[in-house]
């Protein structure tokens, strides 16, 4: 099996906390290196303490074992540091459809304009922040003033 095929298989691995996204959508699957019968999978965490990482490691191991690959090393890479800009366009669309606002693109960190573009439910731009922190480290909590629904925002990071 070559690198592309393995990456293809690994694209099935889901983020346990946002199960509509795969590790490829999130941009946390960084690389696969094959040396002989050893397969090294490089992943990077979204946040340092992301509890999903341990589950993701297990899932990668299990999935590759199912495809007959037993000799697997999973390496955590910290640099370059993950940014929400690495989320794919497909990932962003899936996230919005799931009811979570997609992260603002990168300039936000410099401009300080880290906020969702619109409400993922009714698409109104009339929104306000409830809390800088949401149900997981990667999310903040917002409210739509028009449809009055609260919603999660995947933070620009």
């Amino acid at each position: 099996m070559n690198k592309e095929q393995i990456i293809d298989i690994l694209s099935e691995v889901k983020d346990p906390e946002i199960p509509v996204l795969t590790i490829s959508d999130l941009g946390i699957l960084r690389n696969v290196v094959i040396s002989g019968d050893l397969i090294q999978v490089q992943i990077t965490p979204t946040y340092s303490g992301c509890p999903a990482m341990d589950v993701i490691r297990e899932d990668i191991r299990e999935l590759l074992a199912k495809h007959g690959m037993q000799h697997v090393e999973i390496e955590q890479v910290l640099s370059p540091a993950w940014t929400s800009d690495w989320m794919t366009e497909t990932g962003r669309q899936k996230l919005e459809a799931y009811g979570i606002a997609a992260p603002a693109l990168h300039g936000c960190l410099l401009s300080g304009d880290d906020r969702p573009e619109s409400c993922p439910l009714c698409h109104s731009k009339n929104i306000e922040m409830i809390s800088r922190f949401g149900s997981t480290a990667c999310k903040a909590l917002y409210r739509c003033i028009d449809c009055q629904e609260p919603f999660d925002y995947f933070k620009c990071h």
């Binding site: 965490p45 946040y47 340092s48 303490g49 992301c50 409830i130 809390s131 922190f133 480290a137």
Partner: peptide, 18 residues
């Protein structure tokens, strides 16, 4: 909300310490 905020900051810090 602030209970969650502080718990998330705790998580970041414990992650960094690891």
């Amino acid at each position: 909300e602030q209970d969650i905020a502080l718990s998330n900051i705790a998580l970041d810090l414990v992650g960094q310490s690891r």
